[in-house]
Simulated assay, not measured.
Amino acid sequence: MAITAAMVKELRESTGAGMMDAKKALTETDGDMDAAVDWLRTKGLAKAAKKAGRVAAEGLVAVAVNGGVGVAVEVNSETDFVGKNADFQKMVSSIATTALGANTTEELAAAALNGKSVAEVITDAIAVIGENMTLRRMARVEGDVVVSYVHNAAATDMGKIGVLVAVKGADNGIGKQVAMHIAATNPAALSEADLDPSVVEKERQIQIDIARESGKPEAVIEKMIEGRMKKFVAEVTLLNQQFVMNPDITVGQAAKDAGAEITGFIRMEVGEGIEKKEEDFAAEVAKTMAGA
């Protein structure tokens, strides 16, 4: 039987399944709508899809390093309970290792893991664990040496904040120190040259507005802005920040003193930028116990 777009649309709306899954279900059942629904339920796809609209802002960030390549991966879940689940942690660790062979989140989602794609592995986990989960993002950094650090690790190489630091030259332990610094300070960029121009311009405009409120002459205002922008760059760029291990020097100078150069970094924190619906702890427990 020919599978039409209208049939796929109807099945998607009744089950919440993805387009390709709905089409496959109809193909497998020769267009029998009821049988297709059962097929999706059997595969756990209908159940997983119904949860896809729920906000997944918890979860884990995992890091993996192989020689001069390091990756960080964020896999989200709805509640913090899942982040402590051993099966979830094992899956996230496997995804991070798989990410060493990928360049983008899309490539990672399609990459093979235990005979399935990473996306399919996550879909299967949704059906088993009963919460929405998403492969949100991955990031990659390369250098002579890549050092990793996880703040408040929930398990080996995974937690709420993951950091990778690319080092040129001998590490001598400076990489780990800089990684801890990055976890604490969350710099916006490596250097001034790496800052987003729109961020710089926005800050400059703010400083102009503040300076003009003072009523001082334009010549004085220009010098005020110049000084404040230098301070801003020093505060938000890694190499120019005061090193938390020794505030008398910058991170860049600390690396130089150690005979190394920091050439790149990644700082990834679970849920950053996601608008999370606030719930009290009792409600979260009740929802989890109910299997919602």
Rank of each mutant, 00 (worst) to 15 (best):
A110R: 15
A119P: 00
A112F: 01
L100R: 01
G83R: 10
E131M: 11
S94Y: 11
G101S: 04
K116R: 07
I126V: 09
S77N: 00
V128N: 09
M138I: 04
A119C: 08
K84T: 04
V82G: 06
V73T: 11
G70Y: 01
N76G: 05
S94R: 15
D124P: 03
A86R: 14
F88S: 11
M138F: 00
D124S: 12
M133P: 02
I126P: 01
N76F: 02
M133T: 05
A96M: 13
R140D: 08
A111R: 03
A102G: 11
N103L: 09
T97W: 09
R136W: 02
E78H: 14
R136N: 10
I129M: 10
T123S: 15
V92Y: 01
A111N: 05
G70I: 06
A139S: 15
V75S: 02
E106L: 12
A96E: 12
N85P: 00
A102R: 12
V82M: 07
A109T: 14
D87Y: 09
I122K: 10
K84A: 05
S117Q: 10
A86H: 11
S94M: 14
A109G: 10
G70Q: 01
T123I: 11
M91I: 07
V82K: 14
K84P: 00
T104K: 05
G101A: 08
A72C: 13
L100W: 09
S117I: 09
V92P: 02
I129A: 10
T105M: 06
I129E: 04
A99Q: 03
G130I: 13
T79I: 05
Q89K: 14
T123V: 07
G101F: 04
E120S: 12
E131W: 07
A110V: 13
T134S: 14
V121Y: 00
T104Y: 04
V73F: 08
N103I: 01
E78M: 09
N103G: 15
E74A: 07
M138Y: 01
T134G: 12
F88K: 13
T97C: 00
I122P: 12
T79Y: 14
E120V: 13
F81R: 03
L135P: 10
I126K: 15
R140G: 00
V71F: 06
G130M: 14
V82S: 13
R137F: 02
V73Y: 11
A99R: 02
I122D: 06
L108E: 05
L135S: 08
G115C: 02
